[in-house]
Amino acid sequence: MITVQVQLFAAYREAVGARQVPFDVPQGATVLDVWQQLQATYPKLRTPRPVAAINDAYATLDTVVQPGDLIAYLPPVSGGRSLIPSPSGEG
């Protein structure tokens, strides 16, 4: 097992009851695996595929996490469709 730090915001933070929690996951776990294990512990987290970041940079859900990584899960932002910046800059 490895330990990562999970960071949660807004509705996700309230579902878990903490802004940041250490979390143990198996070696080789992906960002999505971490989320699904969180969901098992905190059933109020219902989003199937959240937007995520590792160490303050957006990361895809299939990224393998490393010990000590700061994994942030980000709810959809207030006015927008997607948190992923579009390369063309088109809104």
Partner: peptide, 30 residues
Amino acid sequence: IDRLKEIVPVWKKEVWEGGEYWIEGSTAAS
């Protein structure tokens, strides 16, 4: 401002009499 509302990770919760709600996606009226 349009782009800010699309891509900047900031969330708002409305608090009203007897309730509160995190605004997400198309539910935001502003």
